[in-house]
Nucleic acid binder design. Structure first.
Lengths: 133, 133
DNA sequence: TTGTAAATGTTATATTATAACATTATTAAA
DNA sequence: TTTAATAATGTTATAATATAACATTTACAA
C-alpha cells in the first residue's frame, strides 16, 4: 500500500512541515509568505505542493475557510474521508476522530444514488472552551 | 416560526429566482452577468443577496465549488444542515434528502466536543448515470 | 414622525487560484 | 547507461472569488 510518509519533494516538504507544525489551519498566501525565505517565490508553487499533499492524504482543505490542516488520522485509508469541528466563536478547528462516524459515512448509500469515494464534512458550533466563557 | 418564504427584497428575489430555476449550482459572477439586465451592477450586490439567502436557508453554498443551489428540503428546520452528492465525472450535484442521515448528523456528539448548530457535508463519487456509461 | 435596521448603490481593492510555457529532476525500462 | 516518460520546478501574467468603505434609500415598528 502506498504510504502516507512517502518521500516528499523539496517544496512539498517545506509546505507540509509548516502546516504540520501550525496549530491552526493555514491559508495558501500565509504559507507563501512563510516559505519565501526558503526559496518558494510564487503562489503556484505553494498551490502545487498543497494539491499534491491533499492527493496523498497528508493534508486536508477546510473548504469553508480556504485553509489547510495536516491530517491527524494517521491511517491513509481514511485520507479521503475528512470531518471537522469548526468553532464559530473562536474559529478553532479540529479534526473529528470518530470511528463510528467514519464508518457510517464511508458506507453511506442512499437510494443507490452514488458510489461514494470521498467525503468532506464540516460541523459548525461553539466549542467546549467557548461554552464555558 | 420564521418562514422560509418570507418576503424577499428586490435583489434577493432576482438572485433567488435565478438559482431556483437553474438545474445546476450557479457561481456568483455567472449570477451577476445574468441579472445585469435587471439592474444589479456590482458583485457586492450579488454577494449580499447570496449571504442573506443562505442565512434564511433558501439556498446553500457548495463550498468545494464556490457555487450556490436552492434548498430542496422544504423544511426550514433543516436549513442549517446540508448534504450533497457531487459527481466527479459529470459535475452533477444533488442535495441528499435522507432523514436518517439528517437525524444522525444533527444529533451527532463526539466526546462532547462541541454543540453542533450547523453542518455541511459533501459526498464525492460517480453518479448513477455516469456509472452506466 | 421619527428613529433604527435592513437593503441598496458604487468604486476600489483584497484574496484565492489557475493558465501557459520553459526548464530541470527523478525514475523505470530498454 | 542511455533514453523516454513522468513528476516537479520556476516564472510571469491573469482569472476568479469575495470584501472594505462609504453614501444613500427603503421599510417599518415605536
Amino acid at each position: 500500500m502506498k504510504q502516507k510518509n512517502e518521500l516528499l519533494s523539496k517544496n512539498q516538504q517545506l509546505v507540509f512541515e509548516l502546516i504540520e507544525k501550525a496549530n491552526e489551519p493555514l491559508k495558501a498566501y500565509s504559507i507563501l509568505s512563510s516559505v519565501q525565505k526558503k526559496g518558494i517565490k510564487a503562489p503556484l508553487q505553494v498551490y502545487r505542493a498543497l494539491n499534491k499533499l491533499m492527493e496523498i492524504g497528508k493534508i486536508h482543505k477546510i473548504e469553508s475557510k480556504n485553509a489547510f490542516v495536516a491530517c491527524k488520522n494517521n491511517d491513509c485509508k481514511i485520507s479521503k474521508a475528512s470531518a471537522f469541528y469548526i468553532c464559530e466563536n473562536c474559529e478553532d478547528i479540529s479534526e473529528v476522530n470518530n470511528f463510528k462516524l467514519t464508518k457510517y459515512l464511508s458506507s453511506f448509500k442512499a437510494n443507490n444514488e452514488m458510489k461514494v469515494s470521498k467525503y468532506n464534512l464540516e460541523f459548525f458550533g461553539i466549542c467546549k472552551n467557548c461554552q464555558i466563557k
